[in-house]
């Protein structure tokens, strides 16, 4: 499944990327599985997701959780808890 992945704030710095396009294997069907697959790719993702906790996720600009099913072509964002206001 082709996905666009965005990283923000401290997580963006830890991964060293703001954005990447990935082709996730068929077994990756949820936000939680996607995060686990990214971590399984090794550095820099494994260290980044270990160093920055907790990490929130959104699909097509709507916050989801580990069980949120992925849509092909979606824009997935990972980020630390927000600190605006």
């Amino acid at each position: 499944m082709r996905l666009t992945i965005l990283y923000f704030a401290r997580l963006r710095e830890a991964v060293g990327l703001a954005r990447e396009e990935v082709e996730a294997p068929d077994a990756v069907r949820s936000l939680g599985q996607l995060r686990a697959w990214l971590i399984g790719r090794g550095e820099p993702w494994s260290a980044a997701f270990t160093q920055v906790r907790p990490v929130r996720a959104a699909q097509d600009q709507v916050v989801g959780n580990d069980d949120t099913p992925l849509r092909a072509g979606a824009e997935i964002a990972f980020f630390p808890p927000v600190t605006g206001g």
Partner: peptide
Amino acid sequence: KTEAPFWKRESGALGSRW
């Protein structure tokens, strides 16, 4: 403060931090 996707980074004499 808990939902809108903004992140603050502050910097000053002691350095910079999220």
